[in-house]
Design a binder for these strands. Structure first.
Length: 232
DNA sequence: TACCAGGTCCTCG
DNA sequence: CGAGGACATGGT
């Protein structure tokens, strides 16, 4: 019998506890978690969007350095990035890899907010979820995972984020037969209460599990899911 | 040294 | 559509 989504969440939560996601640069401010979620500031929401673009196929550590560089230069804002020279942005985000592409994508995103939403993420996030998602996907460099990360972690709306970790976990656990983005997203969303805090914590837990245990070369020895796993 | 990391776009069958 | 290549740094 395959593992259900809810059981998976419970096992991971019991093992790891709250993850405190999404990471932002101001660690001093309270970080949203599953049980005690506080609203993000406008600045934190913008940082989440920026991080979501910069972390495409890249480790988070490299992204953090880029975010710090932007912040130091007072460039971690929508209006500043919209106006800046592409080269300057590329230099500041060098550590995150693909820096030319990402500089363009980040700037296009910021210019879109400036022009279409008067520089206000809040205004864009007030769109119905389906429209917001469609609009994000229309931007160059924003695919399904980046769009959904922004919708969930910045806008706080309940969409389930599917990433490489989610797919790997599915391949090994056999949760859902289909492993493509939208099937997998549907699998989780239909099995769970549509609660942004739950989706937030769940995705963070999947990342934790896959970084520590269910890695490409997995450490199955102490895995809490080994009873249900047909990878072994 | 080579492989990997919280994807997406473009091109070509 | 789906496969395959390009994009690039930093850690192990």
């Amino acid at each position: 019998m395959a593992l259900g989504a809810k059981t998976l969440f419970e096992k991971l939560f019991a093992e790891f506890g709250e993850q405190g996601w999404w990471p932002v640069t101001e660690k001093s401010e309270s970080i949203p978690t599953y049980k005690t979620r506080s609203a993000l500031s406008a600045q934190q929401k913008f940082e989440v969007c920026t991080g979501a673009i910069l972390t495409q196929n890249t480790s988070w550590g490299n992204v953090e350095k880029a975010l710090q560089n932007l912040k130091k230069e007072k460039m971690l804002s929508c209006s500043a990035l919209a106006k800046a020279k592409r080269k300057k942005i590329a230099n500041l985000i060098r550590s995150s890899g693909y820096f030319n592409q990402k500089a363009e994508r980040l700037q296009l995103f910021c210019r879109h907010i400036e022009k279409q939403h008067n520089g206000s993420l809040k205004k864009m996030f007030s769109l119905p979820t389906a429209e917001l998602r469609k609009e994000l996907l229309s931007l160059k460099g924003i695919g399904p995972e980046t769009a959904d990360s922004i919708i969930l972690y910045a806008a706080g709306k309940p969409v389930f984020v599917v990433d490489a970790y989610t797919k790997r976990l599915n391949e090994r656990l056999g949760l859902s037969k289909a492993n493509d983005y939208s099937s997998l997203q549907g699998f989780f969303e239909s099995a769970l209460k549509k609660d942004a805090r739950l989706f937030n914590e769940f995705h963070a837990l999947i990342v934790r599990q896959c970084k520590e245990t269910c890695r490409k070369n997995p450490f199955c020895g102490n895995c809490v899911l080994r009873a249900e796993c047909h990878y072994l």
